[in-house]
Design a binder for these strands. Structure first.
Length: 492
RNA sequence: GCGGGUGUAGCUCAGUGGUAGAGCGUCACGUUGCCAACGUGAAUGUCGUGGGUUCAAGUCCCAUCACCCGCUCCA
């Protein structure tokens, strides 16, 4: 690992090389929002492609999906997000530290209420009215709190141009619910059989209480989520399967093993729907909170599908309430919920049931940054420092650089032809400016795995040199074998 | 949201209330036959933003925005 020891170094590298810019920078920036530059968008797209290939393309038991970001409001009522995706926070007037109200403890030492849960704002408000005996966990002051402030973690927006006739919608805080909402459609149209999965990549939005830390926790972010449906009883086996498979995905794409680890969730930090959850964390090379979550793998049980069956039974009530979610209670679960509309029928066993779900949920932005940081390297070559990004070939934004050795004797024309040919297969970059060594180094900094150079010998025997980024070694390859040579090397 | 810090060229950073700077990078021309060579030249600045004090503000004051560190938070 090179000299990246601070987050600022990463921010600087990302800016300098055109990977990531601050959003709206010319207007002074917008907190927590970032843009991907020319190299960054290639990197990010490659990360998404690699995920899709491993999770969808290479598997017979998983299909893809791309859902709209705006969904029916009842989706979020049923999923629990409208109630439970809101925290009530009070601030200690003495030390100004904010704490979730449900985390506050009585002054009298009570049986420690370890199992904290998100609850609806209404009930939390009712329960939290009296903070006079609560202790600030930071400074120990008793009963000096501000009024509890509700935090809405979902973005809201209006649908409908006519102001009088518009409806408040939520911008999805996770892609998962779109998958659950389409469970029936996929069953009916694709001949999948349990166990099977549905995968989706897309943007999600959360009003985090605090953001900070570059792109690790942004309010707009991209997720790659798989909902893998299986029969209850097999869920633990599949949970183990996906833990291993997802960890391997990161190492297969070049992340160093010593920078990756699992972190099991304790029982008291599990989400309201989860039976088990583990994070895959990456050790970013800076600061104190260096291990950061890249992906969480959760056993969501049959919670979501059962909840949506309740949601479907609530539609009329919602409509009668003028399409207003407030003061609406989710309909009770049917007695025979296992035979409901989101159930699965196993034709061999003649058995109908609501499947369990294993959910690997990866942060694309975080992963892209981990790949970037992990690939960064500095080394001394003949007394000069060489900066390079040792990207896995699948991740590298540019696959091949194409150069004429010098800008004469017909070399640029030949190199151009080769470039025009290669770019049909790979993302290539043509460069004829300045000394060739400089061009090599520039591609090293962008992480380009191979550079093809046309030289004097090319004119005589139609061979070119192919230079390897990591070793800087060169081999001569006949131009008519160049595409197949690079394809093999790049595994494309 | 609290405390601390930062904000000047694409990047890293100098800059004493009085002409806006360096290194690296970028571009052009020449040279250059394989790893950041050299020469000549050039471009690039709302000094984060807005107000105030002053004859004069990058510099002093106020507000604000953004980022970093710590706390806090985090399905």
């Amino acid at each position: 690992m090179g000299k990246i020891t601070k987050l600022e170094d990463i921010v600087s590298l990302c800016k300098r090389r055109g990977f990531i810019f601050q959003s709206s920078e010319i207007y002074g920036g917008l907190a927590s929002c970032y843009d991907y530059g020319p190299l960054g968008v290639e990197l990010k797209n490659n990360v998404k492609k690699a995920w899709w290939k491993a999770v969808v393309q290479m598997r017979d038991d998983i299909v893809g999906l791309d859902c709209s970001i705006l969904m029916h409001p009842l989706v979020w009522k049923a999923s629990g997000h409208t109630d439970k995706f809101a925290d009530l926070i009070a601030e200690c007037k003495k030390c100004n530290v904010r704490t979730r109200v449900d985390h506050l403890k009585e002054r009298v030492e009570e049986a420690a209420e370890e199992h904290t849960k998100h609850v609806s704002i209404e009930s939390a408000m009712a329960r939290a009215e009296d903070l006079s005996n609560k202790v600030c966990p930071n400074c120990g002051t008793v009963g000096k709190f501000t009024e509890p402030m509700p935090f809405k973690l979902m973005f809201e927006t209006q649908m409908g141009a006519n102001v009088d006739d518009s409806m408040t919608l939520y911008i999805r805080p996770e892609t998962a619910q779109g998958i659950f909402a389409n469970f029936r459609n996929v069953l009916d149209t694709t001949r999948v059989k349990i166990p099977f999965g549905i995968a989706q990549i897309g943007k999600s939005f959360r009003n985090e209480v605090t953001t900070k830390a570059f792109i690790f926790r942004t309010r707009e972010f991209e997720q790659a989520e798989l909902e893998f449906f299986c029969e209850q009883g097999t869920d633990e086996k599949w949970y183990e399967h996906w833990r291993r498979a997802r960890f391997k995905w990161y190492t297969d794409l070049g992340l160093k093993k010593e920078n990756l680890r699992f972190r099991e969730h304790e029982a008291n930090e599990l989400a309201h729907y989860a039976k088990a959850c583990v994070d895959i964390e990456y050790r970013f090379p800076f600061g104190s909170g260096d291990w950061q979550e890249l992906e969480g793998i959760a056993n969501r049980t049959d919670y979501d599908l059962r909840q949506h069956q309740r949601g479907m039974r609530t539609v009329n009530k919602w409509y009668e309430n003028n399409r207003d979610l407030t003061n609406i209670e989710l309909a009770d679960e049917a007695g025979d919920f296992e035979k409901g509309p989101l159930s699965y029928f196993n034709d061999e066993q003649k058995k109908r049931y609501i499947p369990y779900v294993i959910e690997p949920s990866a942060g694309i932005d975080r992963s892209a940054l981990a790949f970037l940081v992990d690939a960064y390297d500095e080394e001394m070559v003949r007394g000069e420092q060489r900066n390079l990004l040792r990207f896995h070939t699948a991740i590298a934004p540019i696959k091949v650089g194409v150069f004429p050795l010098v800008k004469r004797d017909g070399m640029p024309e030949i190199a151009r032809n080769i470039y025009d040919d290669l770019k049909r297969y790979f993302n290539c970059f043509y460069d004829e400016k300045g000394a060739v060594g400089r061009r090599y180094r520039r591609q090293d900094e962008a992480g380009t795995p191979f550079c093809v150079t046309v030289d004097g010998q090319t004119i005589k025997d139609n061979t070119v040199t192919v230079r390897d980024r990591d070793s800087m070694d060169q081999v001569r390859v006949s131009t008519d074998k160049l595409v197949s040579h690079l394809r093999e090397k790049l595994d494309l």
